[in-house]
Amino acid sequence: KLLSSIEQACDICRLKKLKCSKEKPKCAKCLKNNWECRYSPKTKRSPLTRAHLTEVESRLERLE
């Protein structure tokens, strides 16, 4: 599967780190437990900047 097509777990399953069936409108866990089942939009991760990478590398060197 391509990364862009990976389905996201519902908010509660993601928060509780449960295996989500990803069914809509309610996944199996939410249906069974009568929880409100919501699927928040995916958040875009910002790409690493060179400055951040350099900072992490220098912190790693100090720890070694």
Rank of each mutant, 00 (worst) to 15 (best):
A51F: 10
P41S: 08
T54S: 13
L31E: 13
L60Q: 05
K29C: 06
L60G: 04
L15V: 12
S40F: 05
R59K: 10
R45S: 01
L15K: 09
K29I: 05
E23M: 12
C13Q: 00
A51Y: 09
S21H: 04
R45W: 02
K32T: 14
A9P: 03
P47Y: 06
D11G: 04
S4K: 05
T54Y: 07
L48Q: 03
L18P: 06
C30H: 04
V56L: 10
T49Q: 06
K19C: 06
K22L: 05
T43S: 12
P41T: 08
C20H: 01
K44C: 11
R38K: 11
E61K: 09
K29Y: 06
R14S: 04
A51G: 08
A51L: 12
K29E: 02
L63K: 02
E55T: 13
E7C: 10
R45F: 01
S4G: 07
T54K: 07
P47V: 04
E36P: 13
P41C: 06
L15E: 11
C13S: 00
K29D: 04
K17Q: 06
L18Q: 08
C20R: 02
S4M: 14
D11K: 00
L15R: 07
E23D: 13
H52W: 11
P47E: 06
E64D: 08
K22D: 04
C30F: 03
L15N: 11
N34V: 10
W35T: 12
E36A: 14
L3W: 10
S5L: 13
I6F: 13
P41M: 07
R45L: 05
C20D: 02
C37W: 02
S58Y: 15
I12A: 10
E64V: 10
N33M: 09
S46I: 01
E57F: 07
C20T: 04
D11Q: 09
P47L: 02
R50S: 07
H52K: 06
A51V: 15
E7T: 09
L15Y: 14
W35F: 13
K17R: 08
I12C: 11
S21W: 02
K17E: 00
R38M: 15
T49V: 05
E64F: 03
K44H: 10
R62F: 11
C27T: 00
N33D: 09
P25H: 00
A51T: 08
R14Q: 06
K16L: 03
Q8T: 08
N34H: 11
Q8A: 12
S40V: 07
L3G: 12
P41R: 05
R14H: 07
W35Q: 14
R59M: 07
N34M: 13
K32G: 11
T54V: 08
K24M: 13
E61N: 10
A9K: 00
E36Y: 08
R14G: 05
D11V: 06
I6R: 04
K19Y: 00
L15S: 09
T49Y: 06
C13M: 04
C27W: 01
D11A: 01
K44R: 13
